[in-house]
Simulated assay, not measured.
Amino acid sequence: MNIDASLLLQAAQAAAGGQQYPAATLYLVATPIGNLADLSLRAIQALSLADALACEDTRQGGSLLRHLGLHKPLIALHQHNEREASAAVIARLAAGERVAYASDAGTPAISDPGAVLVQEVVSAGYRVLPLPGPSSAVTALSVAGDTAATGFAFAGFMPTKAGERRMALQAVLAAERQSQVVFEAPHRIVDLIALLAELAPMRRVTVCRELTKQFESIHTAEAAALPAWLAADAQRQRGEFVLVLHAAAPQAAAEDDLPAEALRVLALLVAALPLKQAVALAAQISGAPRNRLYDAGLKLKNGGDE
């Protein structure tokens, strides 16, 4: 055990050693999504006490244990064997052991294996204790600043087939009052952004890339502006992505509620500029809601026949 691991274990014991860690219990351990320093002291203490570690990938699990100077039996438990591997975990619980479970990164059972394991363990009559910690979905939500949202929902990865993806994204966008968290892989991010720009050009989106890692980036803009932003730098298309689709701005009861001065400014700008640019400037000048200005601008562009 090297000195760094020893210090980590001592700190974990000092901070969390006085808590209860019952035997015959499954511990769900949230692990870092990119920065090892985000591993909690309570998680370290639970891992040090565990008799075995079930993990989505034994290479990842083994690396985490080595970082802590720990050596534990490893149980591979992933999406292809979760039900079968749960039996091995339950057998250890039946023997009075503590078993920890960690997915590759983040909180287990959120777009990662773990839900089946929890269901099987509870059905067998054993306790499951969650150890909260890193979550890319919650991390992205915290930085999105979506003040219009009444709550949030986790949509995870969209389907890979084009038709199914369109339908799924339309369903997500239909929940206009909530923030929606979407995951995406680097080889599909361009297609997803293009579809968002088509389906909801005025919806604000926070694009989080490589959260907590060295090249982390966070960018918020209307969906219509994102394809050009993504194409401007090839680096922006690399890494793991978490997108927060902001709630739609509340709709006004009637356009006539817009202040007369805002409508006057909008009319002048629409006559001289493209609609999107005119709306953006009118919103900055007047302080009126952008979505209502956009609707009014459409009518002005169409001669009031909307």
Rank of each mutant, 00 (worst) to 15 (best):
C55K: 07
A249P: 05
L195R: 13
L258K: 00
V172G: 03
A88P: 03
R166N: 04
S40N: 11
I44K: 04
A102N: 01
G297S: 07
A282V: 05
Q180P: 10
P201F: 01
P22A: 11
L268N: 14
G125W: 04
G156C: 03
N35W: 08
L77I: 10
L7C: 06
G106P: 06
Q284H: 02
Q277F: 08
S217H: 04
L268D: 15
F157P: 03
E210T: 09
E240K: 02
M202P: 01
E97K: 09
S6Y: 13
A234V: 14
A234E: 14
L64S: 05
A105P: 07
R203I: 12
T31G: 05
D104P: 02
K299Y: 00
A162I: 06
A231E: 15
Q237Y: 08
A254Q: 04
P32A: 05
P201E: 00
Q180T: 13
Q13S: 11
V244Y: 02
H219K: 02
D191L: 11
M167S: 11
E198H: 07
S40D: 12
A100S: 12
P22C: 09
F183A: 08
V270T: 12
A30L: 03
L36W: 09
T139N: 04
T58G: 10
L68S: 13
E198R: 01
A115D: 07
A109P: 00
F183E: 03
S103K: 01
R42T: 09
D295T: 15
P22F: 10
L77D: 02
G287H: 04
A260W: 09
I3R: 15
A85C: 09
G133K: 00
S179E: 10
A12V: 05
V122H: 07
L173M: 11
G151M: 05
K301R: 14
P250I: 03
A247I: 02
L74P: 02
L64Q: 03
E216H: 09
L275C: 03
S86I: 13
E56R: 05
D256E: 15
E306F: 14
P113E: 06
V121Y: 07
P186K: 04
L131Q: 07
S142W: 05
